[in-house]
Structures are given as C-alpha cells and as structure tokens.
C-alpha cells in the first residue's frame, strides 16, 4: 500500500502529467467552446421550420415505401435489384423527429454519442502518452533501479506502478467523462436542445462512457507494458506510431490494391471501433448468407486480451532481465 501511495504521489507530481492534463482540458475547452458558439436556443420559428422539414421527410419516406411496394408487385426480381435493402431500408416515418432538423441548435440527445466516442479516442491517446512517459522515464534514467535498491521485489514494484497508473487513469477518466457529458448537457440546456432522453438513453450513454473509461485504462496499461519492454518512453510511442502508420495505413492500402477483401479483421482499429461504437459490419457475404460482424463483445475481448498479453510479457521480462 505504501508503494502504491508513493507511486500515486510520483505520478501526480510529474510535470509531464500536468502538461498532458492541461492539453486534455484544452481539447475539451475547444470542443465545448466551438459547440457553444455554434448553438442557439431554438425559438418558435426554428421549431416550425424543423417540424416542416420533418413532415416533408416523413412524406418522402411514405412515398418511397409505396413506390417500392408497387415495384415489388410488378416485378419482384427487378425490384430486389433496385431496392436491395427492402422497402423499409430508408427508415420508418414514425421515427423522424423534428429535433433532428433544428437549425443551429446543439441537440444533446442526438450528438452526445458521437462526442463521447471522440472523448474515448482522445482520453485514450492522453492516457497512452502519460503512461508511456511515467514508466519509460524511470526505465531509461535508472530511477527504477533506485527504487529496487529499496525494495528488491521487482513484481511488487512494477505492480505498484501499474496499479497506481491504471487506478489514477480510471478515476480521472470517469470524473472527466462525467464533467464532459455534464458540460454538453448544460450547453444544450442553455443554448440548444436537450431532447427528451429517457432511461434507456441514459443507460446507453453511461455504458458508452464506461467503455471510454475502460479503453483509456487499457491504453494506459498497454503503453506501460510497451515502455517496460522497450525500456524507453520514445520506444513505446514509436511502436504505436509505427503500427498505425505501417499497418493500419500502409497495409490497408496494400490490401485494397491487391483486392484482398475483407481486411477489416486484421486491423486493431476495427476491434477498437466495435468495442466503443458498437457492432462493426464489415462484409456483406458473397453467397448472400448475411453480413460478417465484429461484435462489441469480440472487440472488447480483443482489447482486453491484447492488454493482458502485453502486461504479462512486461512482467515476465522485467522479473528476469538485467537492470543497468
């Protein structure tokens, strides 16, 4: 416990941690300020316009459906080719809400999901960098050697650092997510439209926020493991940048050019996306048997599995290797 307390103190005292948190707040500030600047509280005129647009949209959907059903009665084969998604593919007129067409108004209910996905991405990025620096600086400078002279228990030392790091990241991410969502609700409440969020909406949003916290914690743990294995902050960052440039960007292009489809399952980003945003449909089966999907569960299992493998490798390596 003493070790964990000392490591929490070390993490929170680091200037780099302060700078990164300020950076995170700056990104948040810019996002919130931009939203606030571009949102106005809808007046009666704006509502009337939105209702009119929504009504037009509903009528359009009804016409589309009728037209589609007629085509199917006349020539089913030609209709299937023209409407591969069926007559309900364009949407249900009953689902069209006026608030979707409000001009210049930030609608919390509709936009907070996308904003929280964005939060998950940048929370994870900052957690990754802070974590890599936290252990990498000690590995390269020999600071961890000092500590081992005090407590020559390698697993306990590394475990205390990891516990302190992931604990702090998880708590901070949870608080920051609450602040983030609360701020945007306040913006919508004062200068936009909150919508009519029900219990199901809040449950979904809470789950999304929870996944954002989980992803940032996993990013921190993975960065910690990479920096431990590579013994340097820059090495961990280099591995991450190299992976995304060479594999996610480069190999994707090669797969595309070579016509090697489907390639989505070979990229970590597919699983990250599925875990945070929901099931990812990546391939319509050629034999017509249906779509292939990376589910949220399988995305989460890949994230958890990869993190566990990296952490296990880091501990196994750190327990045995010579320390300069």
């Amino acid at each position: 416990m003493n070790l964990v307390r000392a490591e929490v103190s070390r993490l929170l005292s680091r200037r780099f941690t302060h700078i990164m948190v300020l950076g995170l707040l700056a990104v948040f500030g810019v996002t919130a300020a931009t939203t606030l600047a571009n949102s106005t509280r809808p007046d009666a005129g704006v509502w009337a316009a939105a209702q009119k647009t929504a009504e037009e949209r509903r009528e359009s959907l009804v016409r589309f459906k009728l037209n589609c059903q007629e085509k199917f009665l006349v020539d089913k084969e030609a209709a299937e080719a023209a409407f591969p998604g069926g007559c309900d593919a364009a949407g249900n007129p009953a689902d069209v809400e006026s608030s979707r067409y409000l001009e210049d108004a930030f609608v919390f209910e509709q936009e907070i999901g996308g904003l929280t996905v964005f939060l998950a991405i940048y929370l994870s990025f900052f957690a990754f960098v802070i974590a890599a620096s936290f252990i990498g600086a000690e590995m390269s400078s020999g600071g961890i050697t000092n500590l081992l002279l005090w407590r020559p228990q390698r697993s306990a030392i590394l475990g205390a650092k990891l516990t302190a790091l992931t604990g702090c990241v998880a708590v901070f991410s949870a608080l920051f997510t609450a602040l983030y969502i609360g701020t945007f609700y306040l913006i919508a409440y004062t200068s936009g439209w909150t919508g009519q969020p029900g219990v199901a909406f809040w449950a979904d949003l809470a789950a999304l926020g929870g996944r954002a916290v989980a992803l940032s914690t996993a990013a921190a743990a993975s960065a910690f493991a990479l920096a431990t294995l590579a013994r340097h902050t820059a090495a961990a960052l280099g591995i991450a940048v190299g992976y995304f440039l060479i594999w996610e960007a480069g190999a994707r292009i090669v797969f595309e050019i070579g016509g090697m489809l489907p390639y989505d399952p070979y990229f970590l980003s597919s699983y990250l996306s599925a875990f945070v945003s929901g099931d990812l449909t990546y391939w319509h089966g050629l034999d017509g048997t249906g779509d292939l999907v990376i589910t949220r569960l399988s995305g989460g299992m890949v994230v958890a599995g990869l993190t566990a493998v990296l952490i296990t490798a880091a501990f196994a390596n750190f327990r045995r290797r010579d320390l300069a």
């Binding site: 070790l3 000392a6 103190s9 070390r10 005292s13 680091r14 400078s141 600071g143 000092n146 005090w150």
Partner: peptide, 19 residues
C-alpha cells in the same frame, strides 16, 4: 543515481520513505 529532476530533494526522499 538518477533522480527525477523536477522533484525537490525533500520530495525525492519522502517518496522513498513512503515506499
């Protein structure tokens, strides 16, 4: 020994004492 240079001397020792 490598110390984390932004920390003060006292803080450096306090962290070790806590650990």
């Amino acid at each position: 020994p490598a110390f984390f240079t932004p920390f003060t001397g006292r803080k450096t020792l306090q962290l070790l004492a806590t650990a």
